[in-house]
Design a protein around this nucleic acid. Structure first.
Lengths: 199, 199
DNA sequence: ACCATCATCTTGACATTGTCAAGATTTTGG
DNA sequence: CCAAAATCTTGACAATGTCAAGATGATGGT
């Protein structure tokens, strides 16, 4: 039986889950192996049976985070499968919303805490899938004449970069009061996307 | 005499400089107070005479980094004071180049390592200046009809976000091979800016 | 059913690090 | 010239990541 295998059960996933919880409660800087282990109810060294080191656990956490982001994007664009422009807007807003709802998750995904991403195939695959989804929407927009014809991947970098940049700067507190007092992050993202599809 | 005041001299600035060096050699995760102190030739506790804690030193380092970025942007756009569109392109490329030349500096500036930015007035002021410069160029572009008329700060968020996002994603290794094999980061930024000013 | 082997987990240890307290040393103002 | 303040050192402590040694539960072959 794969459930409750033995000693603990599925400790590996329990640690990932515990890690996500610690992340949400204490932020990126509060994420320690020992806290995660303790929260999972095991000794401080137990994680080393399932993860090579802290980086490896972080890789697992970020991978899971990317999967969640992927799912949210998927759900957000699903209702508009016949309207690429709406998909672009909905996807962008979902991206922003994910960042606002899971701030520390978003930060650990994009803040360079994970140091040798290529060493983690599952991570690479999860990000590839997410990016692929973006490219698909872009391409649909281009086919529909909503976005100008350019290499879709290049266009995707522009659009994704746009949304990602605005959200990141907002989370970092780099966007001035005079702007944020008047416009929510979602609104800024929305305006930016409109600008893109205005041509 | 303000030079070589006493024991060490200007230890505060020496620590900031040493911090920047450690950052360049060992990355964000390798930046420790003790290494910085050692590199400055003082004991491990000496920094506490000049900085409340590690966060405070990081604030000083990022502040200095923002000042450098500000200067580079200033130099980059200076030659084109009569051509806003060129200023926008040159500034964006300079932003990207700064990130590529000083990767870890850029990361510590925008990776959420500094936790309570508002507690550091010099930091707030340095970022405000940098952002103000961006807004100025945007406004000049709008006045020249290069960018569509919208609230300049909002437009600035879009443009800055665009550039920042592309650069960030590139540094994080999030941009796929198939794109980066064909286009340099500078090229991607350039294309994105062109897209913006195409209207 | 039994036992050897393996995977999993615990305990204990160590080096690194951020931080603080106590004290030494140097500068400076009166 | 001395007292007070600023600066720096030494020593300590707790938290953390990591490793080694060993305990313990699971598994497969006979």
């Amino acid at each position: 039986m794969p459930l409750k295998k033995y000693h603990h059960g599925d400790l590996k996933n329990a640690l990932i889950q515990a890690g996500i919880e610690v992340l949400a409660k204490e932020g990126v800087s509060g994420l320690s192996l020992r806290k995660v282990a303790s929260r999972a109810g095991v000794s401080h060294s137990a994680p080393y049976s399932h993860f090579k080191d802290k980086q490896s656990l972080i890789a697992a956490i970020t991978t899971e985070s990317f999967r969640q982001l992927y799912e949210e994007l998927k759900e957000a664009i699903a209702p508009f499968s016949s309207d690429p422009k709406r998909q672009l807007t909905a996807g962008s807003l979902a991206y922003a919303q994910f960042a606002l709802d899971h701030t520390d998750m978003f930060k650990i995904m994009f803040s360079g805490v994970l140091e040798k991403e290529k060493d983690y195939p599952a991570y690479v695959e999860a990000t590839r899938q997410t990016f692929g989804q973006v490219v698909q929407v872009i391409q649909a927009c281009q086919d529909a004449g909503v976005l100008r014809p350019a290499p879709p991947e290049v266009m995707a970098v522009s659009v994704w970069g746009q949304v990602h940049g605005i959200v990141s700067l907002a989370l970092e507190g780099q966007i001035s009061h005079t702007v944020l007092d008047r416009h929510s992050v979602r609104e800024l993202v929305s305006l930016a996307v409109d600008q893109f599809t205005a041509a």
